[in-house]
Design a protein around this nucleic acid. Sequence first.
DNA 1: ACAGCAACCGTACGATCGTGCGATTCTGTG
DNA 2: CACAGAATCGCACGATCGTACGGTTGCTGT
Lengths: 198, 198
Amino acid sequence: MAKGAQTREAIVDTAVELAFRVGLGGLTIGELARAQQMSKSGLFAHFRSKEALQLAALARARETFVDLVVRPALTAPRGLPRIRELFERWLDCGRGGVPGGCLFVKAATEFDGQPGALRDQLAQDHQDLFDTIGQVCRSGVSVHQVRPDVDADQFAHDLYGVMLVFYLTHRLLADPAAETHARASFETLLDAVRTEAA
Amino acid sequence: MAKGAQTREAIVDTAVELAFRVGLGGLTIGELARAQQMSKSGLFAHFRSKEALQLAALARARETFVDLVVRPALTAPRGLPRIRELFERWLDCGRGGVPGGCLFVKAATEFDGQPGALRDQLAQDHQDLFDTIGQVCRSGVSVHQVRPDVDADQFAHDLYGVMLVFYLTHRLLADPAAETHARASFETLLDAVRTEAA
DNA sequence: ACAGCAACCGTACGATCGTGCGATTCTGTG
DNA sequence: CACAGAATCGCACGATCGTACGGTTGCTGT
């Protein structure tokens, strides 16, 4: 009983790694089976459709991202430290090529034009992330480190933009200045929302 | 002689539209032939490999983007008007679902992990766009509307981030506030670089 | 108008796709 | 140790993938 779940986990892990390179759509059961050193049918039996496999990979990526980025950030002190923690860990996630948050970005642009369960889940996840960022921003207001008149949604939007362009310049262009630029953008963003006291 | 080039153009146009939905990697010769109402082999003869077809589609997307966004912006007066024109036309391009600049973003995240000619071309195109934005920014300095101490590369980076998150919120989330947020981000960006005189 | 060539089609190929099914091996329990 | 059920495999299926080749059509330049 434990065995099945165990291999399933291993498969999903490999699927995330593979999808991180070729996209969720480019994911192939045959190649996945080869990478996992088992038969196509044996692998396929764990999921009962390709879409289920893709959804499982997406779920795993989400959990990884939450574990590595969101949850640790939420344990940091409210206000600027928490925002900083979120940003830094997010940056780490993209820099190290950890297939977590990265897969979201890739999948998001991949499926934004194809209705279906994948797209719906993607949209939900992104909305959740936006909400989380907004929440982190608002919690900064309660400790008087963030100005009470800032638009938290707008802040979430802007921060996400910084991360998106970081991924692009880092992964596609391999621009060594990607991180420097991202940090600069982030500090500017922070300056615009923080109180004088902070 | 004109006939061949004509159908080739039509094919590429359809390819761009199709790739705009399913991605450059999801592009299929069979489906493309069906959409174009001609045989697979007849279509294939125009390109001699799938990669060539993808590169052709990418080139067409680039031309469209340059025609609709870059070139018109460069005819606007130097300084803030030119920056504004670039932004507005870019926004139009994404809002209307015009498969031009949008395809770049999709393809960029799709191929950022797969070495090859596609990836190289994508990187080149994005680098060119970054350079163009930087140039537009610098030309604003010469007419004293942009502060001479601004980092043009950083500005290009930030503007690109605004566009990326706009695409995401507009296309994936179908957020009606996407444009409002993008405009707000843009104005903040502009305020940070403009001189008091402007 | 006719020769020649570009454009296009039909068909075929090996490979791989996602998905089923029956048989086999493994594993945990009484 | 025997047995039940889970886990995995081998094999097959129809479809579609990218690519090739030889024949047919139709346009074009002289």
